[in-house]
């Protein structure tokens, strides 16, 4: 009884996997973004700095914890420029800018960049001379500033996300906003720096299909940490550190640094199934 059935035959209106594989097969090149893990620049400075910066951030957070509990808004406000500067230095020293050799930005042109598949710390012969110049190329400061601007632009959406998870809508605005700012600077800024506005790369990051590296690890860690940071808030322990958004910030920093370290070492190159 093969009746003509326009609806069934059209793209996606019935369930079941029948049409899915074919569609996937057709769109395969664009739908399965293949982005490569970001490598820390092979320079000795960068290799040293990648360990120093997380330590610096962690000690900054530890030092600021008491003031943070006492007065979250002003502490978050004063520490934000410091964190931003640290992050700025980190991306400039350690990370390849979007579009540069080693940057994970352009996904479609993956083939021509075979030279990228280098283990961290391993010196690649082809990466001398011109390539090295490109690593610290003139676009790096511009890229970092642009990334910072983009991260700032991401604060309002992050604020809305906090509200959607249950943060108050129009009270404690400064608390939530600054928390969103820290999240943006810590997790999104390096991503903007290495991926720019490459839709494919961002899609892979958003869909958790990107391979783990320091940047992606820090991103995932920060969000998961911030999510877990909400857990102690309802408890009736009446502790000062339960104040909004101290726990979120703790989770955020802890998760981000853990994710950055693990993503850069243990899980480097691995993908979520």
């Amino acid at each position: 009884m093969p009746l003509i059935d326009p609806v069934t035959m059209s793209s996606s209106l019935t369930k079941g996997g029948a049409q899915l594989p074919t569609a996937k097969g057709k769109d395969a090149p664009s739908s399965e973004p293949t982005i490569q893990p970001i490598q820390i620049k092979p320079t000795p400075v960068a290799q040293a700095a990648r360990h120093v910066f997380p330590l610096l951030l962690a000690s900054l957070f530890a030092l600021q914890f008491r003031p943070l509990v006492a007065d979250p808004v002003s502490t978050m406000l004063t520490s934000l420029p410091v964190v931003a500067l640290l992050q700025l230095a980190y991306v400039l020293v350690c990370l390849p800018a979007a579009g540069s050799q080693g940057g994970g930005a352009s996904t479609a042109s993956g083939k021509q960049k075979t030279g990228r598949k280098v283990r961290p710390g391993e010196k690649k012969k082809g990466m001398g001379g011109g390539a090295a110049a490109e690593l610290v190329g003139p676009n790096a400061p511009v890229a970092s500033i642009l990334s910072l601007v983009l991260s700032v632009l991401a604060i309002p959406p992050l604020y809305i996300a906090f509200v959607c998870f249950g943060a108050p809508l129009y009270t404690l605005v400064a608390h939530t906003g600054l928390c969103a700012a820290h999240l943006a600077v810590l997790s999104l800024f390096p991503l903007f720096y290495v991926h720019g506005v490459d839709g494919g790369a961002w899609r892979a990051v958003g869909a958790f299909q990107a391979p783990f590296d320091e940047v992606f690890g820090g991103f995932v860690g920060a969000f998961v940490g911030a999510w877990l940071g909400a857990v102690p808030i309802p408890l009736d322990w009446d502790r000062d550190w339960q104040r909004w958004p101290v726990t979120i910030l703790c989770g955020l920093y802890g998760g981000c640094l853990l994710g950055r370290v693990l993503g850069g070492s243990l899980f480097w190159g691995k993908r979520v199934a």
């Binding site: 793209s11 996606s12 899915l20 996937k24 057709k26 769109d27 996300a161 959607c164 958003g206």
Partner: peptide, 17 residues
């Protein structure tokens, strides 16, 4: 509920078309 929504929004990025 929001967690589910966020995860499904991100997973939607994996869809083919």
């Amino acid at each position: 509920l929001t967690t589910f929504g966020v995860v499904s929004a991100l997973t939607a990025l994996r869809l083919p078309t």
